[in-house]
Lab assay of single mutants.
Amino acid sequence: WVPTKREEKYGVAFYNYDARGADELSLQIGDTVHILETYEGWYRGYTLRKKSKKGIFPASYIHLKE
Rank of each mutant, 00 (worst) to 15 (best):
W1D: 07
W1N: 07
W1L: 08
W1H: 07
V2K: 12
V2C: 12
V2F: 09
V2D: 08
P3C: 09
P3T: 07
T4R: 07
T4N: 09
T4F: 08
T4D: 06
T4S: 14
K5E: 10
K5F: 09
K5W: 08
K5S: 14
R6K: 13
R6V: 11
R6S: 12
R6N: 12
E7Y: 13
E8A: 12
E8M: 13
E8R: 09
K9R: 14
K9W: 12
K9V: 11
K9E: 08
K9H: 11
K9I: 10
K9Q: 13
Y10K: 04
Y10W: 15
Y10P: 00
Y10N: 02
Y10V: 08
Y10C: 14
G11L: 06
G11S: 02
V12C: 13
V12A: 02
V12F: 08
A13D: 02
F14I: 15
Y15G: 13
Y15F: 12
Y15W: 13
N16I: 06
N16T: 07
D18M: 12
D18G: 05
D18R: 11
A19N: 03
A19T: 02
A19L: 02
A19P: 05
R20P: 03
R20H: 07
R20Q: 13
R20Y: 05
G21S: 14
A22Q: 10
A22C: 10
A22E: 12
A22P: 15
D23R: 05
E24W: 04
E24Y: 05
E24H: 06
E24D: 05
E24G: 03
L25A: 00
L25P: 00
S26L: 02
S26I: 04
Q28Y: 07
Q28D: 06
I29R: 10
I29W: 05
D31I: 06
D31H: 03
D31S: 04
T32P: 07
T32R: 13
V33H: 02
V33D: 01
V33I: 03
V33R: 00
V33M: 03
V33Y: 02
V33F: 01
H34D: 00
H34T: 07
H34N: 03
H34E: 05
I35N: 09
I35K: 00
I35P: 00
L36D: 06
L36V: 07
L36G: 01
L36Q: 08
E37G: 06
E37C: 09
E37R: 03
T38C: 10
T38S: 14
T38N: 05
T38G: 06
Y39L: 12
Y39W: 13
Y39P: 01
Y39R: 15
E40Y: 06
E40K: 12
E40T: 06
E40S: 09
E40G: 13
G41Y: 05
G41S: 06
G41I: 05
G41A: 06
W42N: 00
W42K: 00
Y43C: 05
Y43V: 02
R44M: 13
R44N: 04
R44P: 02
R44K: 10
R44D: 02
R44C: 14
G45W: 07
G45A: 01
G45I: 06
Y46F: 09
Y46C: 12
Y46V: 06
Y46K: 03
T47M: 12
L48H: 11
L48F: 10
L48N: 10
L48G: 06
R49K: 14
R49F: 12
R49E: 12
K50C: 15
K50P: 15
K51Y: 08
K51C: 15
K51E: 09
K51S: 11
K51H: 09
S52K: 10
S52I: 07
K53A: 09
K53T: 08
K53P: 04
K53R: 11
K54M: 14
K54L: 14
K54A: 09
G55Y: 02
G55Q: 02
G55V: 02
G55L: 03
G55H: 05
I56W: 15
I56F: 11
I56G: 01
F57T: 01
F57D: 01
F57E: 00
P58F: 10
P58C: 08
P58T: 04
A59P: 03
A59D: 03
S60A: 14
S60H: 11
S60D: 09
S60F: 07
S60M: 14
Y61G: 07
Y61L: 14
Y61V: 15
Y61H: 15
I62Y: 01
I62P: 02
I62M: 00
I62Q: 00
L64R: 04
L64T: 06
L64G: 01
K65V: 15
K65Y: 15
K65W: 15
K65F: 15
E66P: 14
E66Y: 12
E66H: 14
E66M: 13
E66N: 13
E66F: 13
